[in-house]
Design a protein around this nucleic acid. Structure first.
Lengths: 107, 107
DNA sequence: TTGTTATATGCTAATATGTTCATATAATGA
DNA sequence: TCATTATATGAACATATTAGCATATAACAA
């Protein structure tokens, strides 16, 4: 009787793969530093240094978090010389982030 | 020049209060156990024991996580004798959860 | 009151997470 | 080649998180 599929597409419990992806993604959004980085990348792409200077976060911290976000395919980058320009890579997740920010602001 | 307000309502950086609420809420959604509980509460209210039995999670764990979710006002409960029936208490966050689950499934 | 069922709580151990420092790599220009 | 700028990485540390056990509380029935 477990995992009974409802008409509306919902299940009583989620399969482990979905659960993993969902929790990983929300976890990515659950850290202030990563939220600030993604929020900055909302409108424009940024070099690592731009992020470091705009948000006043140490370079290694930014780099670590960008790797984290890149592993989840939430950001991507392009190279120009020695400079890497990062931008967001998941419209849907960015939309979800925007919704949550709006939700938080309206309180 | 920091915290410049854009036409579209976005700021270069978020104020700390918003940042706190957003990260707290995403953190709540970033744990598999809490996701499973909220997903179960999507359609119907559940007693603690129903959650325990349906999801096969220990009672103390469920209780701890329900307290966590209640502190963030993501769930509420009503009492009936010795039984507490929990239900979700934030439509918007539930919608965001649904979106992320759908997003994860479509991959 | 005592027992029973349902739920909450305090504590602890294991694990995960985030930041920092120091250093490595990579591209480029002199 | 060497120096410089931009970024990444590894290790260490502090802190946060999670689950589980044991026990407490709360409501109710006998």
């Amino acid at each position: 009787m477990e995992d009974f599929e409802y008409e509306n597409g919902f299940t009583q419990d989620l399969d482990s793969e979905t659960l993993f992806i969902v929790s990983q993604t929300f976890k990515a959004l659950g850290d202030p530093t990563r939220i600030r980085i993604l929020n900055l990348l909302f409108n424009k792409e940024c070099s690592v240094n731009e992020i470091v200077e705009t948000l006043d976060i140490r370079q290694s911290t930014v780099s670590h978090q960008l790797r984290f976000l890149k592993n989840l395919r939430l950001v991507k980058f392009r190279r120009e010389g020695t400079t890497l320009y990062y931008s967001h890579d998941d419209e849907h997740v960015m939309l979800i982030l925007k919704q949550m920010i709006d939700h938080a602001c309206h309180n």
